[in-house]
């Protein structure tokens, strides 16, 4: 496969909705269990870090510590939900359950299957954000008037991390190897993307690196701006970064998976 082929436009049809629907149906079977983490996690983090550790921390840019980390918790959940859905879970469906093989024996194509998986990953991110917003708003940590805007933003961010996860699924030799990107990419982002302390506390070159290459930086920043109700122009930069990188990675991830699966 030549490099340019990774960027060619895959033929995705509305049939990818059927694949999305299949994953949604499985999710709904365990809806109570699936809703628990996004409900409970912000409570735990806010109690321990926001209100516990936060008592010893000065205001950051005039914002109390709990208010500072609350939007970041949503961003982190957006990242984890779709990344894990399109890495471990997609790999299990592809390799162990042979779900993709079964589906491509029908009029649904392999491109539709991957597109459906990516859309579902993004949907999971959106669901997590939608569950967390009222919990966090209850503590008065985000502006509820703007908070609904976070939901479509979470879908977009989810799509980005779904595509990232899918790229790793396309190249991983086995399920254990997905631990590498988690350890070397996802976990550092969890800590160093302006999540628990502002980016400005890092050395300047690292700040530039984070802005250029760490997707979570832009999602944290975006949700923070929307959550505080301060819709500044810099939000457009974050949005543009996410849209451009997301579009590229969506193409690449579908083409990479096609290459892996068509033999």
């Amino acid at each position: 496969m030549r490099i340019s082929e990774y960027f060619s436009l895959p033929k995705v049809s509305s049939k990818s909705y059927k694949v999305w629907q299949r994953n949604k149906d499985v999710f709904m079977k365990d809806i109570k269990l699936n809703f628990l983490p996004p409900f409970l996690e912000p409570l735990l983090y806010l109690a321990a870090l926001g209100f516990g550790l936060g008592r010893f921390v000065e205001d950051i840019d005039g914002v109390p510590y709990a208010n500072f980390i609350a939007p970041a918790l949503i961003a982190i959940s957006v990242m984890y939900a779709s990344f894990f859905e399109c890495s471990y879970s997609s790999y299990v469906r592809m390799y162990y359950q042979k779900t993709f093989d079964a589906i491509i024996a029908t009029p649904v194509t392999i491109e539709d299957v991957i597109a459906g998986e990516l859309l579902w990953g993004a949907t999971r991110s959106m669901i997590n954000a939608a569950v967390m917003i009222p919990v966090i708003a209850l503590f008065g940590l985000i502006d509820i008037r703007y908070a609904l805007l976070i939901i479509p933003f979470a879908f977009l961010g989810g799509l980005l991390f779904a595509a990232i996860g899918m790229c790793f699924t396309a190249v991983t030799p086995n399920i254990m190897s997905i631990n590498y990107p988690v350890l070397l990419f996802i976990t550092p982002m969890f800590l160093f993307s302006g999540t628990f302390f502002p980016l400005s506390a890092l050395p300047l070159p690292v700040q530039y690196f984070a802005i250029a290459f760490l997707p979570l930086t832009h999602i944290v920043n975006g949700i923070r701006l929307i959550g505080y109700g301060t819709l500044e122009p810099v939000l457009l930069f974050d949005l543009a970064w996410i849209i451009v990188v997301c579009a590229i990675l969506l193409l690449v991830s579908i083409n990479m998976m096609k290459k892996r699966l068509i033999v």
Binding site: R22, Q97, K98, D101, A102, A105
Partner: peptide, 29 residues
Amino acid sequence: KSHMGVVPQENNLDMDFTVYENLLVFSRY
């Protein structure tokens, strides 16, 4: 493919669903 039925060598039933749901989910494709 819309006029073809396939019984593959490897079992690839959808483990996340019941017997009946397997048929219904498949019919949607």
